[in-house]
Design a protein around this nucleic acid. Sequence first.
RNA 1: CGGGGUGUGGCGCAGUUGGUAGCGCAUCUGGUUUGGGACCAGAGGGUCGCAAGUUCGAGUCUUGUCACCCCGACCA
Length: 492
Amino acid sequence: MAKEVTSRAENYSQWYNDLALKADLAEQSAVRGCMVIKPYGYAIWEKMQSILDGMFKKTGVQNAYFPLFIPKSFFSREAEHVAGFAKECAVVTHHRLKNDPDGNGVIVDPDARLEEELIVRPTSETIIWSTYKNWVKSWRDLPILCNQWCNVVRWEMRTRLFLRTAEFLWQEGHTAHATAEEAEQEAFRMVNVYADFARNVMALPVIIGHKSPNERFAGALDTLTIEAMMQDGKALQAGTSHFLGQNFAKSFDVQYTDKEGKQQYVWATSWGVSTRLMGALIMAHGDDNGLVLPPALAPIQVVMVPIFKTDEEHAAIMEKFDSLKSALEALGHSVKIDDRDTLRPGFKFAEWELKGVPVRIALGARDLASGTVEVSRRDTLTKETVALEGVEQYIHTLMDAIQKNIYEKALAFRTANIQKCDSWEEFKTEIQNGKFLLCHWDGTVETEQKIKDETKATIRCIPIDSVVCEEEGKDIYSGKPSHRRVVFAISY
RNA sequence: CGGGGUGUGGCGCAGUUGGUAGCGCAUCUGGUUUGGGACCAGAGGGUCGCAAGUUCGAGUCUUGUCACCCCGACCA
């Protein structure tokens, strides 16, 4: 069992990796670039899923499922889209194995070559739009609002646990609308759902904005994003929502008959968040003692640790714990009693801290005598001795305070590391210090590219929320006129 | 795909001028412990990434090869 997490200051990347592994969220799999999500990590992902799913359904979205395999020919339909993904696709060429005639295990049966290769989906736009063609005939069939929870594969050169794995879990929503306005509204609506989820469930402050043309999704007319700041000052794109215009409708010939009897191409959006959110959770809130989970996502919100010497003490403590557990569960909290008798209390404290459990309750002989419990907060690492009588209400209130505090702490960190910048010299040093810089930009791809080449910084977004940016000025690099500031940062 | 690094019990590592493999953690057994990651005693576990070569002898030297990690380019 791990004893400590490497300090963040030394090597953030190493710190992050250690934490993800030691908190028991995931491990490297035997397959290059792929990970095993362990039960504790998956429990957090499941909570994310169920909360997001509920939010989607409130807006009329329905879940569906489309195939993992996409015929290669589908990819030739949308030129820009395919260019964006071509370099990272896994391809299925055969459908059968056979025993090696030379006795070396099994080989791919050369006779089982597929007539048309199948691509393992890197995203499902193509297969879904080829299906939507059959679903859309009339204006009465619109809008189509579908989401699927699935895995996708992108054969990345370099991988990082949760942040960039060859296979990852996500949800992808794909909608079809009669008008451009409606589709654009949908894209905005979803990015706001994501921001709501990030802020209120993940306790993660995010900036909503447009991607610059350079950073847009392959095939999109507009990409909306939520950008979060990690504790090393780098930006993480936490979710995206795309207005796809009629590109996919035209490529896959999805037309409907409007009220005047005319054929019209539909307008599309797509939007998604992935297990990268797990990485965001780790990097935004974790500390040197381990994970810090916001109560809204913690699979275990309260852990109870008994401290005893004799069987009599143990029995008395368990009685208190059992009734407190019921009381807390009645208030909607998930509770675990850590009754393992092979481990000492100190070990358990450290272990549950590593796993980020928001509240810990310890009860020993001293407390039995005085009718109290010791309540510890994971977010502040503080302890208080509280009367056992009615402690469930205290904890119920505390849980909201913890959720709020984790958000406030992350927001304070971001506020301290985001600043306006109008000098190119200052830009070059501050961007390396892990700052988000609000700068004027002339709106050209050339300038953005030059800044990226010189500093590795990219435009994370053109904000439409969280930070005020509408003002006249001059481009930080080219000096040309600009009407608003954009967010520059180095990103994951 | 370019640059750098590492491969030795489950994990983390040591191994000198070549001499037949060791430490910490973990595991198992017994006992004492239990309010912040316990201690003592004992035990099990490795053809040193793989393949050739040099040598009486290779974890160590040579060549080849494979895998993984880090930094770039690419991305949710």
